[in-house]
Design a protein around this nucleic acid. Structure first.
Lengths: 113, 113
DNA sequence: CCTACGTTTAACACATCGGTTAATTAACAG
DNA sequence: CTGTTAATTAACCGATGTGTTAAACGTAGG
């Protein structure tokens, strides 16, 4: 039912194991076995988590010999940021300066379009 | 399994109906019937969506007579923003543009003062 | 060719999700 | 008290998600 892109991305991020995998990939590419090492779950389970992340566009994968390396692709996070923009005016009640700046940037961008 | 707060928030956002409800609430508080109106699904289904949103902290609810009004609570979005912060260096390719905007804004502020 | 290694696929179990209709709760109105 | 309206809860159903183990696949290397 959740066939739209944003739903797929959010659903992929709604699992702590998958978020941990992303955190690990932020330190550099890794193979499936390397990614599985910190977890107590089986390798097939990790493999499917990677599939979910890949379908969400959060990782890209390359194969070299029998190893499959995953690397982080944060573009979907930008989509989330875009979605959240419309709500930004609600959660900047206690604006620090950076938030204020970001908000104004938004306005400038809109004015420029 | 997804008992941590961030997972609950992401899971709540992973449904297009729930995101549409949030979008509606961005225009102002609404009752359950009002929120259900644009959708073809039953009222109980909406009621449970609201429960999910409430448990994720994305809405708060108040009761007045037999009406239950929902209002947007965007604080969880801040948590998402915080989680995304560690990945910002990956996807903020346009940091230069951001800097440019920041400088321009600072100038504007100075001019306005 | 055969074996070992890294990974994926298959088949299954079980829980959760998102929907339904019917019944129930809660508050107002006569 | 009775009936109406707003919303939730209960009971159920099919689809999906996450885990397992066992089998299969693809490549490297003796």
């Amino acid at each position: 039912m959740a066939t739209d892109r944003l739903s797929v991305i959010f659903a992929a991020l709604a699992d702590p194991t998958r978020r941990a995998i992303l955190a690990r990939l932020a330190d550099g590419d890794a193979t499936v076995s390397e990614l599985a090492e910190p977890f107590e779950i089986s390798l097939p389970a990790i493999s499917r988590h990677l599939k979910v992340l890949e379908q969400a566009g959060l990782i890209t994968r390359s194969r070299s010999a029998q190893w499959r390396s995953s690397s982080l692709n944060p573009e979907p996070l930008r989509e989330i940021e875009g979605w959240m923009e419309r709500y930004r005016r609600f959660w900047d009640v206690n604006l620090d300066r950076l938030d204020a700046h970001l908000k104004r940037i938004q306005q400038n961008q809109q004015e420029n379009e």
